[in-house]
Design a protein around this nucleic acid. Structure first.
Lengths: 130, 130
DNA sequence: CCTTGACCTTCCAGTGACTGGAACGCCTAT
DNA sequence: ATAGGCGTTCCAGTCACTGGAAGGTCAAGG
């Protein structure tokens, strides 16, 4: 399989696939003409990577997950631990964003939003780190 | 004021302050010895920037906000519009993260997490983009 | 007066995870 | 033969810093 077919099938852009090869996440074979030739296994890995990335795993995490995936003797507990760590981080991000949202929401509500120059949003931004 | 005092007072790291000068967000004066000399106005701007950044505004947004802040004749509606746009983006990010969290949570719950190699998390990751 | 150590300066390189573009080769169909 | 649509590599840029090296400056203590 050539790169664009794999890109289409996995949803991972060709540029990104080349990048993944560069950082040794995958090592597709080469045809005599120099074109990358993707096996089913390469496709599976890319699918795996695409999914893990949309779930917000970092490339470093993906590398670990791929290794665990390829290791038939690994304990599912190892995978679970990684996922749980990641889950905690997501929870943290959500909380941060919600705090941001609440602050901004309050400011937007307080701002009359007309042609007058008086603006509580800028006033608050100037107030400094509380 | 020297850079480290400003860093301490605004909470913006010295490295970051130099970077902000490099990209023309601030233009502190210089002492004869070449040291940066920060005015009250510089400090206010940095405080403003620090706060806006923790609220998740991009540097580009910060530039706009600073300009609006400095423009005494600007309408508060302009600021409000910027904040509202940003709010919408935050909401989007929160929704994305919540979807991720739900998926991962389900997987972590489904995974027995013991020494057996059978793992629904990896199975799902392999399933591909749904 | 000299030294020490904490500051300050600039400049260069690296991060993460791509993304865009140039310049070129290859393959297929007309 | 040629057109276009693939493929390749390599270089540069993104964003917002961050780390580190090499060197100048300043205030205090001996």
């Amino acid at each position: 399989m050539n790169i664009s077919e794999v890109a289409g099938r996995t949803g991972v852009p060709a540029k990104t696939i080349r990048y993944y090869e560069e950082i040794d996440l995958i090592t597709p074979a080469r045809d005599p003409n120099g074109y990358r030739s993707f096996s089913e296994s390469d496709m599976h890995k890319l699918t795996f990577l695409g999914r893990a990335r949309t779930l917000g795993f970092s490339i470093a995490d993906c590398r670990k997950l791929l290794a665990l995936w390829e290791d038939r003797s690994r304990a599912s507990g190892d995978v679970r631990a990684l996922a749980q760590e990641h889950l905690a981080e997501i929870e943290r991000k959500i909380a941060d964003l919600q705090a941001m949202r609440d602050t901004l929401q309050g400011l937007v509500t307080a701002c009359h939003g007309d042609d007058r120059p008086d603006c509580p949003i800028l006033a608050d931004l100037a107030r400094g780190p509380s």
